[in-house]
């Protein structure tokens, strides 16, 4: 599923990385614990999280994650956007809870990792 289709499905705002909205997502993972994210081996992972800080973006960078959705209406800071842009990440803000976000994505056919 493409990031732009995900944005439409979740009524989410693309905060940065609009030019990469054609990235294709294979699987999704939801966590507020970055250590868990850092154990993933998969490629083309979509991260859904409610943890909005610099380490979320850093973790995506280190894990080669190209798209992060901040659920529960969490806001991305300008510092986070700058780092995300440096790393060509697509960042979305979504007002839905992590549960609803995951539910909608699962229903739309985005596979889990485990």
């Amino acid at each position: 599923m493409k990031v732009k289709e995900i944005a439409r499905l979740l009524d989410a705002r693309i905060i940065c990385g609009q030019e990469h909205a054609d990235y294709s997502i294979d699987v999704a993972f939801a966590s507020d614990l970055m250590s868990d994210v850092l154990t993933l081996k998969n490629d083309n992972v979509l991260l859904i999280t409610g943890l909005a800080n610099m380490q979320t973006i850093r973790t995506a960078e280190m894990s080669d994650i190209q798209c992060v959705i901040f659920a529960r209406n969490k806001r991305v800071t300008p510092e986070m956007i700058a780092l995300a842009e440096d790393n060509e990440l697509v960042v979305l803000e979504c007002r839905y809870s992590v549960y609803k976000t995951c539910g909608l994505l699962y229903e739309a056919g985005v596979d889990p990792i485990f």
């Binding site: 614990l33 250590s35 943890l51 800080n53 380490q55």
Partner: peptide, 16 residues
């Protein structure tokens, strides 16, 4: 922990 770490996974994950 608020930064998303501190769950006791750092060193084991380094080793892996």
């Amino acid at each position: 922990r608020e930064m998303g770490f501190g769950a006791g996974m750092g060193l084991p994950n380094m080793k892996k």
